[in-house]
Write a protein that binds this DNA or RNA. Structure first.
Lengths: 336, 336
DNA sequence: CGGTTTCTTGTAACCGGTTACAAGACGGAT
DNA sequence: ATCCGTCTTGTAACCGGTTACAAGAAACCG
């Protein structure tokens, strides 16, 4: 046992042990072809003996390339969060990249700071910040670091963006409800200031107007409880309702439970619809009609496009993904 | 406009622009006190003019510290995945650390390789690999990289581990059922070879023995269908049953649905209990009695302990978290 | 056998930060 | 004025890899 117990072996240690140069060791580890087999073996033996593992950080610095993609997400819950990460992770793994997580539970100032801190840590960023103006956010980000915007408002910095067409989805849902004979369709909105919530509300308003119906929007904040509360409010105000379209599934489920608790038949008396198609939507009873967004696919595409940008390819600035209507029992029984 | 449009400014550029040395610029950016205010201002002005952002990778290399924690998870779905990451992310953010994700959808060989690749990229690892022998996994990992094992079998490498006390949870549940007057309590086990499934079955057997009851264990594999099948098997064999304790909620729900389909009253004739407290458990009817694991807390503690290890503190090798009993309607009606 | 090509190998500079150490500037005490 | 201590500042080595370039060895040619 020689000394050097503390600290990992470096490439120079291996070179010394193998009686070779660092360049050769580097070549062996990078599988370059121009190394004599005999030397290669000696290097491998030395590396094995010293239990050498290359230091990724040092490699990244000299290559100016980390193989890491930074993912900046808002304070997400449940299925959406896990699915989008699943999609991203799978795609990233396929390309030999890793994901660096960074939640954005902060204001603009800290947010910008957090993004800048990513320099030298990641090759690119995927930013999802539905409550922050991307122009302000990107303005302070070095232009040299690739970034794509996920589900945000349009940006004027020329950054590529990938977005679900929330308004179109909401219109589709309203059309479905109208086709099912519903007229008094009320909307439970998502969080104030959230761009997706705003877009879904816009689609709802447009489709209601197109159908000659009067829109009614109750506030909500995307969680189950706010769906519950909205229904209680409806009851207190004795409003006429034959359909509830919540801006996401969790609120729809909250509404569903509230209606069940007060003995209202779904879909007999009131149809309920959500948005997102979380797995739970299929499992509860009645099954929840919703707009399905292939979230994992969205995540995978984000990685895909960012990789293209990182590799210097040209990508179109905006890509829209359309959600699709999933009809289940919560809206199926047509009113006479 | 001078040249240098390509590439970010480095600390040397800033030093030149400010007419100072790199050491001073470094001191300013690290908020060291011993810099004359006038010079500090000059450096800040220069940095601002060049739009300088420090390169984290370079900093990490020279500090031998990345501020990143690697999280290696199996191919998880839904709530468990998102909750554990939420807990980790919150705790990590509080400590100024980031999370590097790496899914473990691979065999042992690739797994070891993936872990070794983390050297120089992370300060430590949190590894959750319920299907892989941690001794084999850690044997090839440099001892110098801190790692803690999450919800795995015990390891003999002296690595710290953090685990849910599944056996204790199962005992608690059996005690609850016994206290409710149940005697013929059968257990539906989780997947073969899964350590958590084995531990829950062990707890069940121990508690049954302690109560002087005879244990009956049916095979299952954690999904809804296997709960269904287990109940059908019980019916075919005409076994006497007044309670079913499934190793997780999904199987309990499968059992619940099967019982309902065959007209058995729950909890009147048979009580049903699960494990995990998934969101669905609260929403179905009757509400499912289950053992709740605070998953986010588990994640936070993992980060916590790993941070302690990284900072060179001593931590106990094993820490257990106890799940808590959540009583709902599926077990509440006591038998006469 | 000299000259040219091809292949292997090593030296040293570089990536972009941090920091030990030395040197210079300044102030106070004698 | 001299000496000493304190504070500020700069130089250069270092973290652990990659790689341009040069040099040496081997092979091939006329």
């Amino acid at each position: 046992m020689n000394g050097k117990a503390i600290g990992q072996a470096t490439i120079r240690d291996v070179a010394r042990e193998a009686g070779a140069s660092v360049a050769s060791v580097s070549r062996v580890f990078n599988r370059l072809p121009n190394v004599r087999p005999e030397l290669k073996e000696r290097v491998e033996a030395a590396a094995c003996k010293l239990n050498y593992v290359p230091h990724a950080g040092a490699r990244n610095l000299s290559l100016a390339r980390t193989g890491v993609i930074g993912v900046v997400l808002p304070d997400l819950h449940g299925e959406f969060f896990s699915e989008i990460l699943r999609g991203m992770e799978r795609e990233a793994a396929m390309r030999g990249r890793h994901l660096l997580l960074s939640n954005m539970h902060m204001g603009l100032g800290d947010g910008v700071e957090a993004l800048r801190n990513m320099r030298g840590r990641v090759d690119g960023l995927i930013v999802m910040a539905p409550h922050i103006d991307p122009d302000l956010l990107f303005a302070h980000l070095p232009a040299s670091i690739p970034a794509i915007l996920l589900n945000g408002p349009e940006n004027r910095q020329g950054r590529p963006e990938l977005r679900i067409d929330n308004a179109a989805g909401a219109r589709t849902m309203v059309e479905h409800l109208v086709a099912a004979g519903r007229r008094a369709i009320i909307h439970i909105a998502g969080s104030q200031g959230n761009i997706e919530a705003a877009e879904r509300a816009r689609g709802y308003r447009e489709a209601m107007a197109a159908a000659g119906l009067v829109p009614v929007i109750l506030p909500g904040n995307f969680d189950e409880e706010s769906g519950h509360l909205a229904v209680q409010r409806l009851q207190m105000q004795q409003m006429e309702v034959d359909a509830i379209f919540a801006a996401n599934d969790m609120m729809a489920i909250g509404a569903l439970v509230a209606l069940r608790d007060m003995g209202v038949d779904v879909p007999g008396q009131v149809a309920v619809a959500g948005f997102d198609n979380i797995p739970l939507a299929r499992l509860i009873s009645p099954g929840l009609t919703t707009m399905a967004v292939d979230i994992a696919d969205l995540g995978a595409r984000a990685i895909n496009r960012l990789s293209a940008v990182i590799d210097g390819e040209n990508v179109p600035q905006t890509e829209l993904r359309y959600p699709s209507l999933i009809v289940r029992n919560s809206t199926t029984q047509t009113i006479a």
